[in-house]
Design a protein around this nucleic acid. Structure first.
Lengths: 316, 316
DNA sequence: AACTATATAGAACATATGTAAAAAAGGAGG
DNA sequence: CCTCCTTTTTTACATATGTTCTATATAGTT
């Protein structure tokens, strides 16, 4: 316990230092002591909570969540977007914007970049500013998905993003899912396809979405998965996918019948990319994200407050 | 005004620096920028009051005053803020900070909280840190006061505080003072209004300001009381008010013509709330506070040294 | 597309702060 | 009154921070 005398002195020093902006040297001179005494007094005042430093901003909460996510899952970066009572659509847009911002700040040195597919990434690309950074090539990470909703296909997103960056893009002229494993094999032997996939596996940055195939899934929406398929996936223990590659609770690849038909990079390959940025919105995806994190596929996560909270809660 | 991204980044840096004790160098490395950027960010954060340094200035003198106030008026707690030669504005801010600090340390178990109106409470709310304590609801204790100075209205303060606590709030969609007692009756019969007032009367904690209607009164400033009104109040022996409820020297409610027009909780109801925290600054309010204490409306008092001294002197 | 104006980041320097070890001061026991 | 021990202060050094000036990037304009 400090004496009142000492307390008074600490308060005085703290005031001169923090409120009046004096240097420790000046304070020392005024009080006729050496500078280290002032330095130590200030430390003591902090220890005894005579000086308290508050960080006061609405973003404090989400920034704390970010830090916890980074520590807990060994992420390079996490960006948590506040939901503040907004509808899922608005939140999704905010997440996309935050993703676009993050990307634009971190794309500097990248020469090659890959992009997956989906509605979240589509929104991200649309939000991306035109900034004419030459010398970048964007690669699609999977093939196309038929004629519906072309604007969310990997190829299309690669093209749009390249346009905004002033760079170029490659196309993967193949379906994301071949009709048979045999057809896939044949397509994979084609140079145009093979070369692009090889390159896609060696990008500096990959931008991916994540999905939960069972809830509000775009794959189901566009007719790629029917109830039977879903039942099959469920039986195999699938909890999520990234670019048609399904994984289980622990993030291990699940060898479904789809797996042999998919034309796109594998989970293994994805894991080897230095910087994989996952962009996710919607609480129903929490379980899928958790599994992907366990599988170590993701280095950077851009997500909404709600998923962030659930991830941390689930992994207590 | 700073963008969301920038504020987020400043908060992140401030957190690492002030809470986690990282050096600027370490932070710079982590974020991939040069050290001066961090130095400048911290300066910016200080300028924008994202970082606030609070010096808890308690001396023998103020602690003694607190103890005496507690004993003499049977208070649960008293917090006396030293004036140390500061201007009234600075003192008011210190009182508001102390109030915010006290509240944040004592709000833990509260599920429902009420808040009155006024410039002191506004400052308190602005000083309150964002801390995301879910499961609390804030209720306004009175209606609104016209179009002027909306930021000090009970409704607005309830909203702002709820935002900082991560909780929810109710609104009282009614004027603080109806044009006639007849209109008041009709409004009071409306479910939306009635229900909120009912709830407001059962909060765990109420945060109130006190005023002296005759000196530097905000009520007069915003045109709610004119000279005639004041004369009338004087004749009735009014020495202060809390939330438009006027009381006399002994703290007894005064049945002025206003009383029947006010939409807000009554002094009786206020007295029944377990923990009523009064936050007051400015010597001219000493008499009003004394009366309120006599009326037993207040359990905790946060005030400046000067009022504290006068209260004790007056009640020797 | 080229230019200018404006902002921003980084390198290098200047200053301020933190800390270990030596010196001095204070205090207790002989 | 001295000696030894403890505590505090100071000196000198190591680090960390703030600042200026230059280089670079960005935005706006013709």
């Amino acid at each position: 316990m400090l004496s009142w005398e000492e307390r008074r002195s600490l308060v005085k020093i703290a005031n001169l230092y923090y409120n009046d902006g004096w240097t420790q040297e000046q304070i020392a001179k005024k009080l006729g002591v050496s500078r280290p005494v002032i330095s130590k007094s200030l430390q003591k005042a902090r220890e005894h909570k005579i000086i308290e430093i508050f960080i006061k901003d609405e973003t404090v909460h989400t920034v704390n969540l970010e830090k916890k996510l980074e520590e807990h899952f060994g992420l390079e970066d996490a960006v948590v977007v506040p939901i503040s009572g907004q509808t899922p659509d608005v939140v999704k847009l905010s997440v996309a914007q935050a993703g676009a911002y993050y990307l634009s700040k971190n794309i500097k040195k990248a020469k090659k970049m890959g992009i997956s597919w989906g509605t979240t990434l589509e929104a991200l690309v649309q939000e991306y500013p035109y900034e004419m950074k030459k010398n970048i090539t964007i690669f699609p990470l999977e093939g196309g998905l038929g004629r519906k909703k072309v604007e969310i296909h990997s190829n299309q997103l690669a093209y749009e993003l390249a346009k905004r960056l002033g760079g170029t893009c490659s196309y993967l002229y193949a379906p994301a899912m071949a009709e048979s494993s045999e057809l896939r094999e044949r397509l994979m032997k084609m140079d145009d396809i093979n070369a692009v996939l090889q390159e896609a596996a060696t990008v500096d940055i990959a931008l991916v979405g994540l999905s939960n195939p069972y809830v509000q899934s775009t794959l189901e929406d566009i007719g790629y998965l029917n109830q039977n398929d879903l039942e099959q996936l469920r039986q195999l223990g699938v909890v999520g996918d990234m670019g048609f590659r399904f994984f289980d609770l622990n993030g291990n690849p699940v060898n479904s019948s789809f797996n042999k038909k998919v034309i796109g990079i594998s989970l293994e390959q994805l894991r080897n990319i230095k910087k994989v940025i996952g962009v996710v919105s919607g609480a129903h995806k929490a379980e899928s994200v958790l599994a992907a994190l366990k599988g170590n596929y993701i280095n950077v996560l851009v997500l909404d407050e709600q998923i962030a909270t659930e991830l941390l809660y689930a992994s207590e």
